[in-house]
Design a protein around this nucleic acid. Structure first.
Lengths: 204, 204
DNA sequence: ACAAAATTTAACCAAATGGTTGAACCATTC
DNA sequence: GAATGGTTCAACCATTTGGTTAAATTTTGT
């Protein structure tokens, strides 16, 4: 969350987060945010100037919930496999609490072509971390520690297995006619199954 | 695509598809669709009555590009593994041509809670196909044909590995600082790598 | 050839939407 | 306790947006 804030500012941020994550930027009405925060619409502008400014705060916060986990998991001094285990379990734990995060971020970034993400990525220092990790994967492949695999493909594997179920839940639950409790149980067991599957797919 | 259509109707549908897939329902302006189709805004309403009606056509078409592949791949008379290979290669081939499809569908379905998807799923007869496939997976696990795995987890694995990279492309490309051509190449090689990874993860 | 039907257009409309304003309210300080 | 500066609100505003209309144009059936 961004900074210490007055109670009103807090209420606005909580409300804005809820509505923006649910409806996206274009689908959000300032009046709805104001209602949700139980304040006057003018307050939104008093504290945040414009819809776009308010949105940028929420989107930045959202990305900042997600990026540090990637950085922390991949930049430890562990070997490749344990790093990936950390990634999977840390992300799954986060997404069980905040399932709307990925779809929101992906959708908004797909609009915002470039610019905004680039800034965040630079500020969060993702790129060198990724590069180092990629090298580690290549070396682990050469030394026989893991199956020799393109580092990008590997990263895609791990993120896909971890994040996608939370994005696709409504569609898959409907198509396969799965009751909510069953899908929830599947998600709860997800970490161990992904780790097991990943280990098997990476055996040299 | 839906039905035979007059040239104007065609132009509208092409334009509407482009804009809706790019901007989503809430982010789309009827005037922009009209401009893209090089027609008067009134024509949109003459042919499709309302924004919502026009949108429903586009969303339905989009889902109908995606569902039949799932059905066809899973309801053949092949064994589990070849079915999954079909799924991966058919979907990857589609998404290489139509990369915006999944994010668009997921985003809009997440708004539309239930109703709409349910109709489509019923009409497309997904649910019995899924059920039969789930049973086949359980049996294949028991007979030692594949590693014994929860069918839902397996389905999530396959769809995740196949679909997610197309959704997350902008974010990952930026974070890892990957040039477009490299990412494109990764996607081109995706089918074989996913199949290889999947086979390894399913070995009994 | 001509009338009826379908198609296209420009002008228009009402509602919704992001944003502003000026007055009121409140807390702190002198 | 009045002045001060920050906070809140109701009313208002300009623009945008989805949608309509009535007339003009083109197409079609006879």
């Amino acid at each position: 969350m961004s900074e210490k804030a007055t109670p009103t500012e807090e209420k606005i941020l909580r409300a804005a987060e809820k509505i923006f994550l649910e409806k996206g930027y274009a689908g959000t009405r300032m009046q709805v945010v104001a209602d949700e925060a139980e304040i006057n619409k003018a307050m939104l502008h008093y504290y945040f100037r414009s819809k776009e400014k308010l949105f940028r705060v929420i989107l930045t916060d959202a990305v900042n919930e997600v990026l540090p986990i990637l950085i922390a998991s991949l930049s430890s001094d562990k070997k490749v496999i344990p790093k990936l285990h950390d990634l999977v379990s840390n992300y799954t734990a986060l997404l069980l609490k905040r399932p709307q995060l990925p779809l929101f971020i992906m959708h908004e970034l797909s609009q915002n072509q470039g610019k905004f993400v680039t800034d965040l990525a630079l500020r969060a220092n993702t790129q060198p971390v990724m590069l180092t990790f990629f090298q580690q994967v290549v070396e682990a492949g050469e030394s026989g520690e893991v199956y020799p695999i393109s580092p990008v493909q590997l990263l895609l594997h791990v993120l896909s297995l971890t994040v996608f179920p939370f994005i696709a839940r409504p569609m898959i639950a409907t198509m396969a006619n799965l009751p909510d409790e069953l899908f929830q149980q599947v998600l709860d067991e997800r970490t161990q199954e992904v780790i097991r599957f990943l280990d098997a797919g990476l055996k040299p």
